[in-house]
């Protein structure tokens, strides 16, 4: 009874805090939008419009109303899913973004698989061999991934593995002559090509995906490695590691059954948070690899100053971040017996 109530109160508290953060997010994007030195009215009506036209558009945009009224209107628009039109494509911004999102999700998902596949084993290895050469080697390797300017590494990797060695596909999601060959049903090229039974397109897509995903994954693995190592060290210093050894388990069994299995939940939360951070790398790597995803959409609109599109992108990234944070929190509560 009281347990259920406590859980309800905690959930309610969390809901309120998420709502407040979302409101803050809206305020932030609203004010950044207003900070802009460029004149949004002038952008619409053009340089040689009459003052009457100018004033009409000015009040149409609601710019003559007080700031709080403008904010309320912006909030209402966002809540009803109206993010405005993109100047470049003339389409509703949200539709554009939904169109480009699958490409980014495909890239980021591959990258996180690589990042976790690299980071978790390396972190365990480093913790088990703390202060030995393996530990130092892992540390330098992962800091290296964390230190590289990913847009530059992307260019160098293209130069070596595509232009030089020809091992992987170049820019874009697939080779040119495959473009338009498979109908877009889900937007995820790997799935679409499989649905259409086009194996050549599928392999071309993998070929193009592997390099940017590896680079993104490598840069994300630094954080995963570091956290895995420190979680593992926490475990290895615990008294129950000794208990397990006294029972007759080998060191390897102890590490696997008692240390690693204890940190699985924490690792899932870390990987979820890293997934959000990947979006940041995606903005740069998509520019380098001409990847038609979210990041490229954002940078293209930045260059032409389409603030509607830019602010919507920023807002969406913020929402994804909050959602991932919430998700990792919930996972933790669900799977750690101590929080029940």
């Amino acid at each position: 009874m009281s347990k259920g109530r406590r859980r309800f109160r905690r959930a309610a508290g969390q809901a309120v805090s998420v709502a407040v953060t979302l409101l803050g997010l809206l305020m932030l994007t609203f004010f950044i939008g207003r900070m802009m030195p460029a004149d949004p009215v002038r952008a619409i009506v053009g340089e040689d419009a009459t003052p009457e036209t100018y004033d009409m558009v000015y009040s149409q945009l609601g710019l003559d109303r007080p700031l709080w009224a403008q904010f309320l209107r912006y909030m209402g628009d966002v809540l009803t899913g109206n993010f405005g039109q993109s100047i470049r494509t003339g389409q509703p911004v949200i539709q554009d973004i939904l169109h480009v999102m699958p490409a980014t999700i495909e890239l980021a998902t591959f990258a996180i698989v690589i990042g976790a596949g690299l980071g978790v084993p390396l972190g365990v290895l480093a913790a088990v061999n703390k202060d030995r050469w393996i530990d130092h080697a892992v540390r330098v390797f992962s800091l290296f991934g964390h230190s590289m300017p990913i847009f530059w590494t992307g260019m160098i990797a293209l130069l070596i593995f595509y232009a030089g060695l020809g091992w992987v596909g170049g820019s874009g999601r697939m080779d040119y002559f495959y473009i338009g060959m498979v109908p877009s049903r889900t937007g995820f090229l790997l799935i679409d090509s499989l649905l259409a039974g086009e194996w050549r397109v599928f392999f071309s897509a993998i070929n193009h995906l592997i390099l940017p995903a590896t680079l993104l994954g490598y840069s994300a693995s630094a954080y995963i490695t570091r956290m895995t190592r420190s979680f593992m060290l926490d475990q290895l210093n615990q008294e129950y590691m000794t208990t397990a050894r006294v029972k007759g388990l080998s060191r390897g069994q102890t590490i696997w059954r008692h240390a690693f299995s204890n940190i699985r939940v924490q690792l899932v939360t870390i990987v979820a948070l890293s997934y959000g951070a990947l979006l940041e790398g995606a903005v740069l790597i998509e520019t380098v690899f001409a990847w038609p995803g979210f990041g490229q959409y954002l940078t293209n609109n930045l260059v032409i100053g389409d603030m509607n599109a830019v602010m919507t992108c920023v807002l969406i990234v913020g929402v994804i971040f909050i959602a991932l944070n919430l998700l990792s929190d919930i996972l933790y509560r669900l799977f750690d017996p101590r929080t029940k």
Binding site: T242, T243, A244, V246, G248, H258, S261, P337, R338
Partner: peptide, 20 residues
């Protein structure tokens, strides 16, 4: 270890694995 010789540790708060 465990089969022929074993050891009882001091504090069950720390010597038992908390999430098993």
């Amino acid at each position: 270890r465990g089969r022929r010789m074993s050891m009882i540790l001091q504090d069950p708060k720390f010597s038992l694995n908390p999430i098993q």
